[in-house]
Design a protein around this nucleic acid. Structure first.
Lengths: 245, 245
DNA sequence: CGGAGGATTGATGCTGTTCAAGCGTAGTGG
DNA sequence: CCACTACGCTTGAACAGCATCAATCCTCCG
């Protein structure tokens, strides 16, 4: 997975890899601000959590598996996806530090989740988690709002998959990732892409060839710069226009 | 909107329109069983509700409008959609009796909602609704689960829009509608289609021509029978296979 | 009867897919 | 140190599915 390690490329690309701060503790510290939990609520949750660690390609849970836990990602990234019996795959999203998984608390997971690289997460036993929530209406409301935001983003994805061109999909994907990275305090200019081209393709309803070609074209046109393990956004205006709602 | 009124067609199609029971009261009586609320919880909600009625094409609320209310549909059907600045539209779903709208309780509606025909709904003032929920953790959990199911269906739609063929989309749409109709106690064989072909197209990420052609082909092949205002499902096995996960 | 709106059908074209070959880099082992 | 392999990515050529453009049909309704 060389392309995922973002080495400092010595030549053309003045690229500095994002500060890698292994936190390695089972906490909720690095929850993004948009979905941030108030301190008191975080403290209520923390005693329930157990730290889990995954290596690349390991599965956190599988689609339709009984959902025994709720997770909060603390480091790394995961891909969330469904697969049809004939192998066609839809990557419904990617999870980054601060993101909750399984928050809708249905009996079974609606997607599979596996690690794009080393991942750590906090694990909550679902029933205990729900018991706690029953006594914390404010926290419950907050988690409900997070689910509501996820639902809103799912509708964005429907619009993207149903009605947008390949170039718009790629641009929207990049600027969306940028916005998420900003919220968790990462570079807003050079985006690490921890997922492969095939993951992006299966997320955007395209083929790997179209993803590759479209990225190449955006690079050639000076909108982006493809760097090892990621992408640097050059023409922000153009990208924003392409991804405009 | 003649094709939406489902008249008894005298000739070839032995079609009986679904019993039209105007309930006309601002209650939660006809909530579907899958999302049904326990009696006690329904009684807690009912005092907060005000009945609203819409005529065809009237708007219940618009995308990005401050979300002052939560709704529960009591009769009729609505289309839920987003529009891009250049006019491209994605219909994210349709709402039928029993469905909640605005349940994620974000500050603004994430889609627009307007009536496909005459509609009645219960309206809840959002803040009062939320206040009530704070004291009713069981009800809150239940509504959260409904939102979780909606999120799961949104992921189904992503798979459909990203990875399925036109024929599969149509078949999945029809069998999905069938399942919803069964849950609210309507015919499982002859489906009323209160939405037009354009609505279906914008829901499935197709054009109106492709929807029309695909329905015609399924009709010609004996999988369905197109009747005025709806569709009769003939070859259930074939449709199920086409929409199989 | 005539108009309006939706639906259907046909001809043609384009965007993205499919099939196929080649490239670049990392890792391995002689 | 370098050949060899593996894997992901890129690029090209041909193709297909769905879109686009356009005409016609159907039904309702004034």
């Amino acid at each position: 997975m060389s392309t995922h390690s973002l080495p400092v490329s010595p030549g053309i690309h003045p690229y500095r890899p994002p500060a890698y701060r292994p936190d390695g503790v089972g906490t909720l510290r690095r929850v993004s601000s948009a979905t941030a939990l108030p301190l008191a609520e975080r403290d209520a949750l923390e005693p329930l959590s157990r730290r889990v660690a995954l290596d690349q390609k390991q599965t956190l849970y599988g689609q339709d598996e009984p959902a025994a836990s709720v997770y909060n990602v603390t480091s790394g990234a995961l891909r969330l996806y469904r697969i049809l019996t004939d192998g066609r795959r839809q990557v419904t999203g990617f999870a980054f530090p601060g993101d909750f998984l399984g928050l809708s608390m249905l009996d079974r997971f609606s997607v599979s989740a596996d690690a794009l690289g080393p991942v750590t997460a906090c694990r909550f036993e679902r029933l205990a988690f729900m018991d706690l929530l029953r006594g914390q209406p404010g926290l419950m409301m907050h988690l409900h709002a997070i689910t509501g935001q996820e639902l809103s983003r799912a509708k964005d994805m429907m619009m993207l998959l149903g009605r947008r061109t390949a170039e718009e999909r790629i641009a929207t994907f990049l600027t969306g990732l940028q916005a998420r990275y900003v919220r968790i305090g990462r570079s807003a200019v050079t985006l690490e892409l921890p997922m492969g081209r095939l993951d992006i393709a299966d997320h955007l309803g395209l083929t790997i060839e179209t993803v590759s070609r479209t990225l190449s074209r955006l690079d050639r046109d000076g909108a982006i710069l493809i760097v090892p393990g990621g992408v640097r956004l050059i023409d922000q205006g153009r990208l924003d226009r392409l991804s405009a709602q």
